[in-house]
Design a protein around this nucleic acid. Structure first.
Lengths: 201, 201
DNA sequence: ATATCTTATTAAACTAGTTTAATAAATACA
DNA sequence: TGTATTTATTAAACTAGTTTAATAAGATAT
């Protein structure tokens, strides 16, 4: 109900991203890519809502998918998936449990998707692509690990500045109160930080 | 210089842990395990210090390895690796760059190690073990992700209580100022939290 | 056992955040 | 275009942490 499907697109960017991790032969690549479907999501539509199962693994071709929970009325943004990101609600995807999260297109978005079953077929068929799977997990691990250390070691202001530096367009693309949530602070807190910074300059 | 080596041990616990992730045939398992070496580290000795390369991937059989940096004189503990943990300084290991971290045995410890080269051999030889590699990365991903959300969403007091619950023995095994560092607070801060909690009861 | 060194607690002053509420600015839409 | 709604800022009172420094308690070694 959420989306419309249509396939047969170039997938060049996806192919390129996969090969940035490890060598994959043309035949294995072809085998893998044929399972991907192109999907488009209008701004404000959902790829996933709580209490639903998630069957697909995604790659962002264009747009922005916000990954968040709502607990006691408070939105908590865990990630903004933009161009080139692989994503899913990994916990629910792995365990095949009902999700507790939202995946919302906060911009008009185009993604490629592959079902868990098909992904398993791909990994069974291709050692090279299983390796890609391992390495992309490893990459994500490193990124998350750096994020953990940032959260523990940097002040909110420092984290805001790092975000500005690393993902400069995000603040133009996403409302500020969601950025605040992503940083783990209140909108008021972020506003204060911005004021403090603008006064310093 | 840091350690002494000797091999031929049962490795039963390592085998069991690997098989908790995915099926691995006896022959693949045998092939993989023969690369692991048993190493022992006395309390206070180092598996890794800054500006050294790390060549090995580890599994903790017994003991506790603290993974930390020292920045501007401040120790920042990133993880305590205890029984059943796989670990290495992943960033330096992957990129083969000089490490910026310490891996210190904060208890007398026994670990199994495999070199990066040998690990690559194992992955090249066995699709099943490559899958184990992917799945164990995935597991670590989920754990780290939960940790990120805890850091963003919970108060220091709540995180301390969660740590007490999830790893209750850790506080007996590790000095409190390292626990504080792991939680991202000062020893004084942790002491205050403990006082507040003991008064509440 | 005593002295030494490390670790933990406490106190006091301070700071960067919080909450709640009001206001201002920006955006959407009818 | 004007009005309604959403988003961002500001203010005020508060809170959970910080830093520095002193003290107490615990562990180690001679």
């Amino acid at each position: 109900m959420f989306f419309s499907r249509n396939s047969k697109y170039t997938l060049e960017d996806l192919k390129k991203t996969i090969r940035s991790f490890t060598h994959v032969s043309d035949s294995d690549m072809e085998f893998g890519l044929k399972f991907f479907k192109k999907e488009t999501f209008k701004k404000g539509t959902f790829l996933l809502k709580p209490n639903h199962y998630i069957h697909d693994f995604y790659f962002v071709k264009q747009g922005c998918i916000s990954y968040y929970t709502i607990e006691e009325g408070t939105t908590r943004v865990m990630e903004f998936f933009t161009e080139g990101y692989f994503f899913t609600d990994l916990y629910a995807f792995i365990e095949q449990t009902p999700s507790e999260t939202y995946l919302e297109a906060t911009e008009d978005s185009i993604v490629y998707s592959i079902s868990k079953t098909d992904q398993q077929k791909v990994y069974d068929h291709s050692h090279q692509l299983e390796r890609f799977g391992r390495l992309s997990m490893q990459r994500t691990f490193v990124i998350n690990f750096q994020r953990i250390n940032q959260l523990r070691n940097l002040s909110n202001q420092e984290r805001y500045l790092q975000l500005l530096e690393k993902r400069p367009t995000l603040l133009q693309r996403v409302p500020q109160y969601l950025i605040a949530s992503y940083l783990g602070i209140t909108p008021v807190g972020l506003s204060k930080i911005r004021k403090r910074l603008s006064e310093k300059k």
